[in-house]
C-alpha cells in the first residue's frame, strides 16, 4: 500500500502533501504518543485524534511518512508548517478511529506486530 491508497481508502483530504507514492507497511492508531513511541515499525502511518505539534514530532522520530487525523479533525497552521518541513503527509478523514483503522486493516494493512 502507498500513501495515496490510504488517502483513497479513507476518502480523505490532503492537508499537507509529502511523498504520496511512499510505501506504507504498517499502521498505528493512538492518541497516546508514548504508546506510539513504544513500538518502532518501519514505514508506518499514524492514525490519531490528537491535534498538536507533538503528533508531527512523534512521526518524525519514528520515520513515519503519513499522519491521518480521524473524525474530521483539522490541525492548525503550526502543525501543518512543521509537517511541511519534515516532508510528512497529513490527511484528514471524516471516519472515526475504529472505522478508519478497520478500513485500512481490511484492505491489507497490518499492525506490524504479533499480539
Amino acid at each position: 500500500m502507498i500513501v495515496k491508497d490510504v488517502l483513497d481508502i479513507l476518502e480523505g483530504e490532503i492537508i499537507c502533501e509529502g511523498d504520496l507514492d511512499q510505501e506504507i507497511k504498517t499502521a498505528c492508531g493512538s492518541d497516546m504518543m508514548s504508546d506510539v513511541l513504544a513500538f518502532v515499525k518501519d514505514q508506518s502511518v499514524l492514525l490519531t485524534g490528537l491535534v498538536n505539534p507533538q503528533v508531527v514530532r512523534t512521526a518524525e522520530m519514528m520515520d513515519m511518512a503519513c499522519i491521518v487525523f480521524v473524525r474530521g479533525k483539522m490541525p492548525d497552521e503550526s502543525i501543518i508548517k512543521l509537517a511541511e518541513t519534515r516532508g510528512i503527509t497529513l490527511i484528514k478523514t471524516r471516519f472515526r478511529m475504529f472505522t478508519a483503522c478497520g478500513l485500512l486493516y481490511t484492505n491489507g494493512l497490518s499492525g506490524g506486530t504479533k499480539v
Binding site: 497516546m32 504518543m33 508514548s34 513511541l37 498538536n52 507533538q54 512523534t58
Partner: peptide, 15 residues
C-alpha cells in the same frame, strides 16, 4: 497532549 502515560523512562531504557 498525548503524554504522561508512564511510558517515558521505560521507553528510554528499551531503546
Amino acid at each position: 497532549l498525548g503524554f504522561g502515560a508512564g511510558m517515558g523512562l521505560p521507553n528510554i531504557k528499551k531503546y
